[in-house]
Nucleic acid binder design. Structure first.
Lengths: 210, 210
DNA sequence: GTTTTTCTGTTGCAAAAGCAACAAAACGTT
DNA sequence: AACGTTTTGTTGCTTTTGCAACAGAAAAAC
């Protein structure tokens, strides 16, 4: 998908056109925001990287989404219906633009450039989320840990236009992202190496098949 | 979420305002459409019900989404990147409105009411998809078959505002929707009954806890 | 109303995944 | 460089899940 919405330019041009938009800084491990029902935050990650995580009653952590430079997040993209807490956690030092809508359909009363442009571009930002969600569903519906790993590796390989790529996660986090047990995943990773499906050097993976 | 877009009225008012919009009928088990890369179909299911399914290389079937009256689907809501075939299969006799965009951003040259209204409402239709996808991810990230079942039952219970509700799927299809083995799911279902978590009579389930 | 097909319910066995625990390595901080 | 902390890699054991197969019930087709 080609977004006509260039986040970087958008920030440069319009950040200061609305005084209700705040720029905040977060240190590693800080909670950037937690998703709250009936609120509509819209956030842009200017720098750093962060995860949207959910903790369930059994103490399992799931990484729902992973954000890097210029990614957008907030309740605007996530109708909160769950009982479980949804947090956005900074994985490194992060700079974030935050704006809270009363209602996503209302335009900003000041009719500022920021919101004019945003209203215009929101549909494609949302469409982009749909794409990444569909991909996520596709990964999660794979039946085995092996298929999930290979599915995810294929994705990264396609994105990088290369059989070699670097994992954006620690292996611990990767397990939480694929929603599998870490030790079981490590075992499978080892088998994939032994059976010459992949080569692995730290977080750098190379696909050896096809 | 409250959609201001009322599909039923939309169809009544605007169906005939654009001569490129087709109304088609499909019999049970027929393929309504298959998702094709770089195409942008927009479909409305007027009556009947249908599933969006994916068959993977191991022959596993996954039900990605389930559509009933007034649901919308098509590539417009699904950026096709997968190698696997994505089909929309009629589960009963279906009536469908179909329109194929050259590009989702171009407006219909005829500038008809159908597309005017659709362009206006597409963002919230897409936002609605995001919501259902987020819910789906939440279900699929549950670690056990039991948690998936209970998660799904809770959802149906909440939607119906009642501890008792009817499954919209056959049990065979439910397994494909939750992405688990049918016999394993049946076993778990039996345990849930025995441990008095649920009562089950055909496709009617009653939650007995809390 | 009979036949055919699909769906449900069940089981034994095999395979995969989860859990718990620990040591070694890597990373960050002072 | 030394410390504490997090991550990686591994393993033995248990539990869960998947697979294959089959019989009976229900639904659909003729």
């Amino acid at each position: 998908m080609n977004l006509s919405f260039n986040v970087e330019n958008f920030i440069k041009e319009f950040e200061n056109s609305c005084n209700k938009v705040q720029r905040k800084t977060f240190e590693k491990s800080e909670v950037i925001t937690s998703y709250i029902q009936k609120r509509n935050q819209f956030c842009i990650l200017i720098s750093g990287n962060a995860d949207l995580v959910r903790y369930d009653l059994n103490g399992n952590r799931t990484i729902i989404d992973h954000f890097t430079n210029n990614d957008v997040f907030g309740e605007v993209f996530y109708d909160v219906t769950t009982n479980n807490e949804l947090l956005v956690e900074a994985k490194s030092k992060c700079e974030v633009l935050i704006y809270s809508y009363q209602n996503i359909h209302y335009k900003c009363k000041q009719n500022c450039k920021f919101h004019q442009k945003l209203t215009e571009c929101l549909p494609e930002l949302i469409l982009d989320k749909v794409t990444s969600l569909n991909m996520r569903v596709e990964l999660l519906t794979k039946r085995s840990t092996r298929d999930k790993l290979l599915g995810y590796f294929n994705l990264l390989s396609t994105r990088n236009l290369s059989k070699t790529f670097k994992l954006p996660f620690s292996l611990t986090d990767l397990a939480d992202y694929l929603s599998v047990d870490r030790s079981a995943m490590m075992r499978e990773l080892k088998l994939l190496k032994e059976e010459n499906f992949i080569k692995k050097d730290g977080k750098t993976i190379t696909l050896l098949y096809k």
